[in-house]
Design a protein around this nucleic acid. Structure first.
Lengths: 195, 195
DNA sequence: TGAATGACAGATATTGAAATCTGTCATTCG
DNA sequence: CGAATGACAGATTTCAATATCTGTCATTCA
């Protein structure tokens, strides 16, 4: 597939790993498979990633970062804070729902990977709540929201909407009525935030 | 253990099943084990429960019903609705947390069982949200809460607090700071409910 | 007569030997 | 010289044979 003649970089290895994971799934994807896909010996892969776990973590981080980037635009928008908050939460839900719906197997694969990886996931969640904190803080600044501790409040909002972004609930995102349930939770939270 | 001479009832079988599950775990607990524990043939167990799945479902239902009963008292109390709501949510969290903390293996066993069993779990959740609906409706009636559709609002409150009662989050219930996070979520929801 | 048994067929789980994988490193290659 | 290799030890996974389990039912028991 990709020419063997190119220089072997961490990036190319990550790409190949993603492909191997897509084909074989998380349980059967081996470092040897990745090396085979690249046409190199598995020893070469170990020059770039110390362990199989490190390789998996790097792929996971890449994947999580893509979600974070897509959302950071919304968090920074100039609209009023309430609309931004609603938009951000809806975008998060929509993004997750689409990923889970479009390619359930790949989504399941990454759900397993994130489950393995405390660190990368922790950083991702910290990143997302930081975005939420920015939105809430700007609401407090403009007087439309009330919150003693915007960071703690952001965590609360994030956790309260967990059902609509935590991969553990993915199978329920296609059920009829989720839209309404999401709207009801968001409504309750927004009302609780208002000054 | 229990005298073999007694009449074999569904209740005695359920008790023995619980004991076998506690000892062997969900993966290795067999109908033959249950029969052995009772000193009868496994054919006798099949007289009371058509399948192994039905037996497991019955044990699960029993376990879930115990939680529901403990909470129904709080839902019916005469206190003001806001205090009742706070008390009910705190009691739910506390009950789950205690179960998970006291006997993690048994809790894990029942988490697996509830995962197998859509029906019993669905009924349990319906029961709990019905209790919540009662509390919220009485708040709406006395004018302290606002909710267009108390039942939908109750579901929203239940889902928003999922992190503090869904078994999937059990390993996070012992972490430092959960109390504060729980308090922050409840605070936000109660504020959102106020008229 | 109705509850309990145990033998049975097919499905599922366990086991242990063989194959594969992970991670290292002395050696080769360009 | 730095990048890549492939042989290696120990850990993990696969696979097929064996054992156990599930669910049924004709028979026994009290």
């Amino acid at each position: 597939m990709t020419p063997t003649s190119e220089i072997l970089t961490a990036e190319r290895i990550l790409e190949a790993t993603e492909e191997v994971l897509r084909r074989h799934g998380p349980a059967k994807a081996t470092v040897v498979d990745v090396a085979r896909a690249l046409g190199v010996s598995h020893g070469s892969v170990y020059r770039h990633f110390r362990t199989k776990a490190a390789l998996r973590e790097a792929v996971t981080k890449r994947w999580l970062d893509r979600t974070s980037e897509a959302l950071s635009g919304i968090a920074a928008e100039g609209r009023d804070p309430e609309a931004r908050l609603r938009g951000w939460l809806a975008a998060l839900f929509e993004a997750k729902r689409r990923k889970a719906g479009d390619d359930p197997e790949l989504f399941a694969t990454y759900t397993v990977l994130t489950g393995e990886n405390g660190t990368a996931v922790g950083e991702h969640l910290a990143d997302l709540t930081a975005q939420l904190t920015r939105i809430i803080r700007s609401g407090v600044d403009t007087g439309v929201f009330t919150a003693d501790d915007p960071e703690a409040t952001a965590r609360a909002v994030f956790q309260a909407t967990g059902r609509f972004h935590d991969p553990g609930y993915a199978r329920e995102w296609g059920l009829p009525g989720v839209e309404e349930e999401f709207a009801a939770v968001v409504e309750l939270l927004v009302r609780g935030l208002r000054a």
